[in-house]
């Protein structure tokens, strides 16, 4: 699954609505609890442990990708 697909799954929305520019504020379900859900799901799917600083940095789809890229799990 791609990052968009995982996020689409977590927030139960069409992945095509998500672009790198999509911000946290733009997605209703992406509240603090939604953020936890996202991190849990990303960790499970990509088999990584996301450090707390990185987790707090993930404020948009692009930022999420950036972090995962640093972890070497996406291209």
């Amino acid at each position: 699954m791609t990052v968009e697909e995982v996020m689409g799954k977590v927030f139960k929305m069409d992945r095509r609505m998500l672009t790198d520019q999509t911000e946290r504020a733009a997605i209703e379900q992406w509240d603090s609890m939604g953020h936890l859900q996202l991190i849990t799901e990303l960790e499970e799917h990509f088999g990584v442990k996301i450090a707390i600083g990185d987790a707090m940095e993930m404020g948009s789809v692009g930022k999420v990708k950036e972090v995962l890229r640093r972890y070497g799990v996406i291209g």
């Binding site: 603090s32 953020h35 936890l36 991190i39 996301i50 707390i52 987790a55």
Partner: peptide, 13 residues
Amino acid sequence: QKLFYLARMGLSG
């Protein structure tokens, strides 16, 4: 521990 720090959530799903 991370979930606890991030959201004061003591128990996992």
